[in-house]
Each structure stands twice: as structure tokens, then as C-alpha cells.
Design a protein around this nucleic acid. Structure first.
Lengths: 257, 257
DNA sequence: CGTCAAGAAAGTGTCGACACTATTGCGTTC
DNA sequence: GAACGCAATAGTGTCGACACTTTCTTGACG
């Protein structure tokens, strides 16, 4: 069932981020990317136990790189490890997602303030340029591109804060909520508001209006949260009831610690 | 040199935290704790390459659990992995430390605000009780206890924020700066200010004065930063020049990306 | 005397195998 | 017929070995 992971998955996945520790095109790295993709696309379902042997067979490598990848994913919060029972897919319950968005909001607004204090004028201008370069065709891009551009925008703010730890944190959060953001982006209702938000944020940055910009960011992120809840329900429904979307009452999955 | 890791290290290390994924008393977990202890105590020196075979010999296990532990530590930022060259101890340069403290400050003040908004009265009271229970003997405890109590205090605030992601982040940050905090605690100059800080923070919590409490926390943390810089210098000196503390000019270590 | 190259040594990345733990299925007993 | 325990199965945790890469050593050449 989880067999036959698409083998072309190792290339296009790491769109944007991960300012962390880098690796090469090892088996281990490849496994990490593929498994993470399986996770964010719900090919591996929330709450499910991960069978290392199956995975190693379907990826064509031994269990060692699989386990290394899973350990890494456990540190990043994608999966959890119960001692002699194995790795489990951590189900992002609704609250879990909201917690993540809240953390993101905290970090981003803090990053914005720091950027206002510290960044060079030329750097602020880079942010402006970045946004202006993509704003025109923004709505017309495919979802993956929109997502990458959006993440890039926010990551750039984090970078201009001058604190690499913030960048790392944000990148890690992004990876965990990427799947839901992609779903959201496909609800076209949101794009317009997103564009005006970003423009307003850039404007605040140019003025170095830390308070207002931070507030805009908070609102920008929190605005998406309600839509997120619906998107999450849709996603879970799609996962647990791929065809018959009828009896959604009985689907009481997504229970997590 | 790094041989003979103290074998009694697996018990007392995990003082406080790690609300993350849990494991058992596996070899892997044991290795993780021991290696992390070696790292925070500078037994493994910043910038140094970590020899897996040596480590596995000195811990009496094979390389597999060693590598799992190192992967975990890499995700947490303690070490870095260069593809075919191995794991390296990430040297916490001065800026790196300041970045971490800044992140900590951001998260803690945000947590305080959220706690003020959300926590039950009884929970706030738990914070008050926690602090009152330890404040009397605070100064007289051994450093490790003081450190654990201090971390516990701040972690409790994070818990009362109601956002487990904040707890996890803070726990992870704590682990990375623990070594320097321990050194700081041994400079007795600081205790007094710390005690009054904590008391003031509790007071603000009881009044649910989010703004003031967050400000106090920021100051409380930033206050330690200048002391931290000196403490870091001392620590590095001790590490790289264990006996002859004379020519500190030539020690140009702690260079990091 | 310094530079470079080839070979030797050391070290990482991955594998298959085995021991031990958890789980499942079956038969026994009340 | 249900609960319990026991055996069989499935799955994780760890090991030692080997291939391949990097690093060090040695020796030849300019």
C-alpha cells in the first residue's frame, strides 16, 4: 500500500528551506526527503505505525538509512518513537496545527521587529525587490511555486533579522505546515488578501515601522488559521475517506497526545 | 583522550526537560545522553571532528546507536554533519550564543503573554507556589540544582502558555545553553538579581500583567547576556588552555560559520 | 627545498544477520 | 462461550563486516 514510493521524489521536494545541517545525496538524505514527502502528503497516515522493513524495501535501501531518516524526522516532530514498538506518524491534530501557527506568528513578528532595528537599507530594499519581482504573476503560478515564493518572502524577513536561529526555526516550522499551506493555496479565495498583506508588510518594513509590521504579520498569519481549520478537515477527509466522502461522522481519527 | 567517558553519566543528565519524543533506556538513548553531556561539558571540543569508532569503543556499543544519537544531536544543532567526512562539534561562537539567548527571550516573553491570557487562576498559583517553594534555599543549592530549578521555572511558564510547541522549543534551547548557564551560576554575583527577577515575574503573573511580565522576562534574560559573554570566554579558555592560561591572544578558536 | 602524486591508513555509509521484544492467533480451561 | 495463557509470528534494536571516500604518509620529481 505504501509500497512503490514515487522514485522521482528526491529532487523536487526541498523547495525552499532547511538552513540547517546539510547532507549530500546519500541514501540517507534521499530516504529523508522521500519519507518526509510521504508524510506531508498523507501517504503515510496520521497515527499509523511505520514499518521499517516495508519502507526499506520500497525505497530499495537497507533499514539503516531509513532509521537515520526517521530519527531525524522524529527530532523535527514529524514522527514519534515509542521504544520497542517503532516509529509512528504524528498526527497533526487541529490544536497541534494551531500551536504551530502560533509559534510561527511569534517568531515572524519578532523577526520583523529585529529586522527593522538592524537591517541595512539595502537589505530592506532586497525584501521590497523580492516581493515586487513576484507580485505580478503571483496568482497565476502553480501552487508549489506560490508556496515557495511565500515561504521565501517570510524566510527573507527572518534572514534580515540577523539571527540565524530564527531562520532555522522558521524553516523547520515551514516544513511541518507546508502540506496544509499547499492545500490552502488551492482555495483561491485567499490569494488576494495574501497579496495585500505582503504589500502592506513591505511598506511597513520600508518605513521601519516595527510595531505595525509585526501586527500585520500576526494578523496575516492568524487570518489564515480559520481557513486552515477547514482545510485540515478537508485534507483528513481526503486521507481517510478517499472515495466515499459520505459518513464523515464515524471518522474519528487524528487523535494525538 | 575522549576515551573513558564517565559511565555514570546516563542517569543524572536529563535534569529537566525534553518534552519531545520519548525513548527508553536503549543503547541509543544512553549514547545520546552521554554524548550530549560530553558536548555541553566541552569534553568534545568545538570544531572537533567526532570519531564514531572511538566513541563506540568508549561507550561499549556499536556504531549504530552512536550514529542515531549523533543524527538526533545534529537535528538539535549540537553537531553538524558533513557528508563523507563525519560529524563535527558545532562551536558555539559568541554570536551563536547571543542568537540563542535572543530566541529564548522571544519565546519566553511570548509564552508569558499567552499564559496571562489563557491560564487558570489555579495554574498561575502553581507557578507562584513553585517559586515560593524553592526561593528560600535557592542560593544554597549546588549549581546543578539551581539550574534545574531555574529551567523548571521558565518551562512551567511555557507550559502554562498552553502551547506544547513552545515548551518543546524552550526545552531544546535550554539544552543547548545549559553548559554556559551552569558556568554562569557559579559566578555568585548573579543569584541575587535572578531571585528578585523571578519574584517580580511571579508578581506580574499573578496580576496577569502581560506587558510588564514579558518586559521583565526580556530584561531578565538580556541581563545575563553580558555576563554570558565573559563566562563564555572563561569557558573557552578553560577548554583550550587547561593549564597555561597565559597567551590567550593566540587562541583564535571558536571560529564557526 | 618545496610540490605533487601515488599508495596506505583511517573513517564513514550501508548492508545483512541475529537477538530480543511486542503482537497476533490458537488452544485450553473454567 | 469467554477469559486466560502459550506458542508462533512480525518487527525493532544492535551488531560486525565490507565498500567506498577522505585523509595522511611517503617518495619521486622539478
Amino acid at each position: 500500500m505504501t509500497e512503490r514510493a514515487e522514485t522521482s521524489a528526491d529532487s523536487d521536494l526541498s523547495l525552499a528551506n532547511e538552513a540547517e545541517t546539510r547532507r549530500s545525496a546519500d541514501s540517507s538524505e534521499r530516504a529523508y526527503n522521500i519519507i518526509r514527502k510521504l508524510l506531508v502528503e498523507f501517504k503515510l497516515k496520521p497515527g499509523e505505525r511505520i514499518n521499517e522493513v516495508q519502507l526499506s524495501r520500497s525505497l530499495g535501501v537497507s533499514r539503516t538509512p531509513i532509521r537515520e531518516a526517521l530519527n531525524r524526522l522524529a527530532s523535527e516532530g514529524f514522527v514519534s518513537l515509542t521504544p520497542n514498538r517503532g516509529f509512528f506518524v504524528r498526527s497533526l491534530s487541529t490544536e497541534g496545527l494551531l500551536d504551530l501557527y502560533e509559534l510561527r506568528s511569534i517568531i515572524e513578528s519578532a523577526a520583523f521587529k529585529l529586522m527593522c532595528e538592524r537591517a541595512e537599507d539595502s537589505e530592506i530594499d532586497r525584501l521590497r525587490q523580492y516581493w515586487e519581482a513576484i507580485v505580478d504573476g503571483y496568482r497565476d503560478q502553480p501552487p508549489d511555486i506560490i508556496l515557495a515564493e511565500d515561504e521565501g518572502f517570510h524566510l527573507l524577513i527572518a534572514e534580515l533579522s540577523g539571527n540565524p536561529e530564527l531562520v532555522g526555526q522558521l524553516a523547520s516550522i515551514n516544513a511541518r505546515i507546508r502540506f496544509i499551506r499547499r492545500i490552502q493555496i488551492e482555495h483561491p479565495s485567499h490569494d488576494k488578501a495574501q497579496i495585500t498583506s505582503h504589500s502592506a508588510i513591505v511598506e511597513a518594513a520600508v518605513k521601519r515601522d516595527a510595531e505595525n509590521g509585526a501586527k500585520l504579520l500576526r494578523e496575516h498569519i492568524e487570518m489564515t488559521v480559520s481557513a486552515t481549520q477547514q482545510a485540515l478537515k478537508d485534507a483528513l477527509l481526503k486521507v481517510f475517506a478517499p472515495d466515499n466522502g459520505a459518513d464523515l461522522k464515524r471518522r474519528r481519527r487524528a487523535r494525538d497526545a
